[in-house]
Design a protein around this nucleic acid. Structure first.
Lengths: 195, 195
DNA sequence: TATCTTACAAAACTTGCCATTTGTAAGATA
DNA sequence: TATCTTACAAATGGCAAGTTTTGTAAGATA
């Protein structure tokens, strides 16, 4: 029985959208609950019926972006294609996702780094989803004898070796350069080494 | 013609030592020039005859540590030994150097991260020294046909692939774990891939 | 009964002032 | 003449006031 004409879920989504807009415009430090509430036509206290606290609202923004990334990555897990190519494209996609966020949405990206603490459940979910996706690709490559070794160990090696292409601090540091070719070459060397 | 009985260089070194001691004890934010000066038995203004400003004193501390690291790494460049083993030990040494700094000297490490901007000449010097050392090892490995490819490209690949083992943010993140075995295995895979 | 408002308490963030620290200049000393 | 001191100016840091923002509780409304 809402008073706003919106369901709880709709209001949540609208609140998230408003938050993103204000983060983009003014930076996340300047996002005020009263402003968000004003945009939605309610008082700030009403937001507490939908979000536990301000952090939960920010978390929702981050979660949304992480789910987007998971989806983008999932598109490269097509079982009909060559697994090694899939892994390469998967890593390149991850690299690009982080890169584009930094480049085209720097304010949102700062918010993301501020919020995305490793211990939060939705971050854990994102990480384990990524590991699962990558592990499946690796297992497929192992099944087709394209590489050899222990699946889990190889997953960690790929993630470790490509850290400089997807870790936030490093993506920022190299933001000027087009490092996609270097990433592709590095993966080729890795795959050769795992054969 | 010093009034302190010390040469400029000696006083500089003493100032650096006092700075390190105070950084360790109280954190770098609380290092006061007047305290350093008191330790040396001069007024704070006297320090400006030896250091351009406070930042220059802090830089000298960082430079000292980087030169130490360069020296440690140089010890693994012995031409009589197997180049691939040297590269492995070199990378492990780099990993350990960063790790130990974080673990046993966290205050000094914070100071280091505060000071070590990439654009400072002594940081540039450190980086180019490291690249030179590694390039020589790679060239030796190429000469002995242990691996194949372009020396400079391989240097960058090794540094990229091992970023997660020596980049400050990541070293901190994994500080609990003993990742030396993982680093060694990763390098083995890389070397196989470069054969 | 979930969602909202009003009213209020707690926490975090400004603002302005004073104390400390950093940096400079002019001159003393070895 | 390089190094140092004294004296001073500029910048920074810390604290206490008031203000804004966040979070809570009690009750209204659909």
């Amino acid at each position: 029985m809402p008073k706003t004409g919106l369901t709880s879920e709709q209001l949540k989504q609208k609140a998230i959208a408003c938050t993103i807009e204000r983060m983009r415009k003014f930076g996340y430090e300047k996002v005020r609950l009263s402003d968000i509430a004003k945009d939605l036509g309610v008082t700030h206290a009403a937001l507490y019926s939908h979000f536990a606290d301000k952090a939960a609202l920010f978390d929702a923004v981050t979660e949304k972006w992480l789910l987007d990334v998971d989806e983008k990555l999932a598109a490269h897990c097509d079982p009909s294609k060559n697994p090694l190519e899939c892994i390469t494209n998967w890593c390149v996609e991850l690299h690009k996702a982080k890169r584009e966020k930094v480049q085209f949405d720097p304010e949102l990206y700062r918010a993301f780094n501020f919020c995305a603490q490793i211990d939060k459940p939705f971050v854990q979910h994102h990480i384990s989803t990524m590991r699962l996706q990558l592990k499946e690709l690796v297992e497929r490559a192992l099944a087709q004898k394209l590489i050899r070794g222990d699946a889990q160990e190889i997953v960690e090696q790929i993630l470790d070796a490509t850290t400089s292409f997807h870790h936030p601090s490093l993506v920022v540091y190299f933001i000027e350069q087009d490092r996609e070719p270097a990433l592709r070459k590095l993966l080729q060397v890795l795959f050769r080494g795992l054969k």
